[in-house]
Amino acid sequence: MGAIEVEKITKRFDGFTAVDAVSFVVESGEVFGLLGPNGAGKSTLIRMLTTLIPPSAGNARVSGFDIVHSAQEVRRSIGVIPQAMTSDLDLSLAENLIIFAKLYGVPRETRARRVKELLEAVELEQWTDKPVKFLSGGMRRRLEIARGLIHEPQVFFLDEPTTGLDPVSRVSVWEMLMKLKKERNLTILLTTHYMDEADKLCDRIAIVDHGKLVALDSPLKLKASIPGANILEVSFSPVPEGWLDTLKSLPDVARVTAVDHVFRVSSNNGPRTTVALVEAARGAGISLVSLSVQSTTLDDVFMHYTGRQLRDELQESAVYDPSFMYKK
């Protein structure tokens, strides 16, 4: 039995389909990522799985409980960090956690100990009695992670845990999550629109676009699944006549383009092409000025499956940001 089993789950809002017949299974102990641009339906999907909104069709089980018919059992077994920061700013960190411990029915004897342990785990113990409003965004996220774990859930849902955080805070949230996951054998489902986050944190990734699941696999396999797994950027001195054609004939090369004196070689097998390229250059008696091999990113994967770049999508949805408009 998977920790989360989703079967053709669908959500419609007044005729608009936000989540469209999505199915997947998350195994126990797995970190599963939903990757998609703004409006893809990530939050809607997570809200259905956490019993916040009823699905229009299809069904799902979390920890073996049906999300509609056994909603209370589902709630007892999961921890949830909503997309918005929802801690009580006027209350202290400990108070916030205690109140949620009570809401989750954590027995009186264990409450104080759990609060202490969790605040230590997210490295906020020196802030225990300070009001939450003194915390930075990253610290607040870490507090909410602690809050979501107060009742020791088996399955943990996080909706965009690092959106809006600076790079340092993001890394610290990632580290926190990996540490907690290892210590507690959590099953984690998180949503994100950062490719690096999905790549670094997740065992498997589901790419969602316009409410549909378009691809699902481990980051490595996803990247391997698209043609042209590597890009070689290389420059030579001197460049003999017909060199472009020589490059094109190297093994596993899909395409070659030349910009000024730099060649971009798209290869289905980076290592093999690289070795052949170095040998060809030596044979022709020319030297390599520079060589870099880049692997495919999830952005390339996203582009392959949706025909669009994830970055563009994110910018499109930010057209109302004035600073973006001035640049035009």
Partner: peptide, 14 residues
């Protein structure tokens, strides 16, 4: 509106 209720609704309170 700030989502505080969302935080309560995911707990097993009736």
């Amino acid at each position: 509106a700030r989502g505080l209720h969302e935080g309560y609704l995911v707990t097993p309170i009736t």
